[in-house]
Amino acid sequence: MQEIIDFVLEIDRLKLVTRKTRVLNSDRYENSAEHSWQIALLATSLQPYAAEPVDINKVVAMLLVHDIGEIETGDTIVYAEGGWEERKAQELACVTRIFGLLPEAQGQRFLALWREFEDGQSAEARFAHAADRAMPVLLNLANNGQSWRENGIRHEQVVKRIGPPVRQGCPALWTYLETRLEHAREQGWLG
């Protein structure tokens, strides 16, 4: 029991990792724990639109563990250029340490889910990636492009970085986003 409690208290630190997108109707930026919770609900809601059948419990578990490495690395905006290999190596070291707090079988299960998400090869990982990439776009669309405008993000960057994983994991969601991204460009929210 103590190992599980130690783990749960350690991951509380994810609430301190600030992201680049604001919570709707607020000046406060969301944190990575809130992001994980929201994309888990997004994926659960979008399950009927997944490109292929998925085990939604596995998808949700992936989404709940996928950003735990940010406890030590912080959040990096998805549009950042370069340095991804180093960041992912640091995240792996972090999740290995944190999942190592759990009883061995549980820790290995969470680490396997984290790795599966990172590899992006299974139907569940592809669908999880679609939800993960789409949620900041949805928030930006609802916030008049807040994070895009603050960080000088261009329409082409969003389409290039977000389009492929969303299209692959949830094509109907990409169809929905494409039209709205064009509207965002027309509004001047994207460079």
Rank of each mutant, 00 (worst) to 15 (best):
M1G: 10
Q2M: 03
E3N: 12
I4R: 13
D6H: 03
I11D: 04
D12V: 01
R13G: 00
R13I: 00
K15A: 11
L16D: 13
L16K: 08
L16E: 14
L16C: 03
T18Q: 13
K20Q: 09
T21I: 02
T21V: 14
V23D: 13
L24N: 10
N25W: 11
D27E: 12
R28G: 04
N31K: 12
A33L: 11
A33I: 05
E34W: 15
E34G: 08
S36M: 11
W37L: 13
Q38W: 09
A40C: 04
L42F: 02
A43D: 11
S45G: 11
L46E: 11
L46I: 10
Q47N: 09
P48D: 08
Y49E: 05
A50W: 06
V54T: 14
D55P: 11
K58M: 06
V60K: 15
L63A: 00
L64E: 05
H66C: 08
D67I: 04
I71N: 01
E72C: 00
G74P: 13
D75K: 04
D75N: 09
D75R: 15
T76Y: 12
I77P: 03
G83D: 09
E85T: 08
R87N: 07
K88Y: 12
L92K: 12
C94I: 02
V95D: 05
T96G: 02
T96F: 11
R97I: 01
R97W: 05
I98K: 14
F99E: 02
G100S: 14
L101W: 05
L101K: 15
L102N: 03
R109Y: 07
F110T: 01
F110C: 07
L111A: 10
F117M: 04
E118D: 12
G120Q: 05
S122G: 07
E124A: 15
E124N: 11
A125L: 10
R126Q: 15
F127P: 15
F127A: 13
F127K: 14
A130R: 15
D132C: 13
A134H: 09
L139P: 01
A142T: 07
A142E: 12
A142D: 08
N144K: 15
S147A: 15
R149I: 09
E150Y: 00
E150P: 00
E150S: 01
N151H: 10
G152V: 01
G152C: 00
I153L: 01
R154I: 01
Q157N: 05
V158F: 07
V159C: 10
V159I: 08
K160E: 13
K160Y: 00
K160H: 07
R161D: 14
R161N: 08
I162L: 12
G163T: 01
R167K: 07
R167G: 03
Q168W: 13
P171I: 03
A172M: 05
A172L: 14
L173P: 13
L181F: 11
L181P: 09
H183K: 11
L190R: 06
L190C: 01
G191M: 02
G191F: 04
G191H: 00
